[in-house]
Amino acid sequence: MTTARDIMTPGAECAGAEETVMQAAAKLTELDVGALPICGTDNRLKGVITDRDIVVKVLGKGKDPSKVLVGELAQSEAVTIGADDGVDEIFATLTSHKVRRLPVIDGHSLVGMVALADAARALSDPKAGQLLEALSTD
């Protein structure tokens, strides 16, 4: 069985909840990624910040990214997947929460990220199509 650990990008870096959105944007640029997990000072996962969040929730609303803290953009509960969860569970989580990226945790530790493309490559062709369709509809 293919698991999240098999298809994830390991070594995900966090954006600290106390960092500014400007600092997170710089980290996104440096790492050439579209999303970063948000970690609190307790090293617990608080959510995910995306490049789209920065544009829509900060810049689009005329807020100053050097003054807005990343933690202000964290969701109420982070959607995650366990490192040993199978592709079917990844598929179900992506579709039910309509997200494109999932932090992968092992216990309480962040060990990587699984993106939509990772899951699509691991699924059979019909399931990959279902996943893309489910995430593309409102």
Results as ranks from 00 to 15, higher is better:
M1F: 10
M1V: 14
T2W: 08
A4M: 12
I7F: 02
P10L: 04
G11D: 08
A12P: 13
C14Y: 01
A17R: 10
E18S: 14
E18F: 12
E18H: 15
E19K: 02
V21M: 03
M22W: 05
A24Y: 05
L28N: 04
L31M: 12
D32T: 08
D32R: 13
V33I: 14
A35Q: 07
A35K: 06
A35D: 01
P37Y: 00
I38H: 08
T41A: 14
N43H: 11
N43A: 14
N43K: 14
G47W: 07
G47P: 09
V48P: 10
V48Q: 06
I49W: 01
I49S: 00
D51W: 02
I54C: 07
V56I: 15
V56L: 15
K57H: 11
V58A: 00
V58R: 04
L59I: 13
G60M: 08
G60E: 02
K61I: 09
G62C: 13
K63Q: 05
K63W: 03
K63P: 03
S66H: 13
K67P: 00
K67T: 03
V70E: 00
V70Q: 01
Q75L: 13
A78Y: 00
I81V: 13
I81F: 02
D84H: 12
V87M: 07
D88S: 12
E89P: 12
E89T: 13
I90E: 08
T93F: 00
S96R: 15
K98V: 05
R100G: 06
V104P: 13
G107V: 12
H108N: 09
V111P: 08
V111N: 04
V114W: 03
L116N: 00
A117S: 08
D118Q: 07
D118W: 08
A119E: 02
A120M: 10
A122N: 05
A122M: 05
L123E: 06
L123R: 10
K127P: 11
A128E: 08
G129M: 08
L132G: 04
L132A: 09
E133M: 09
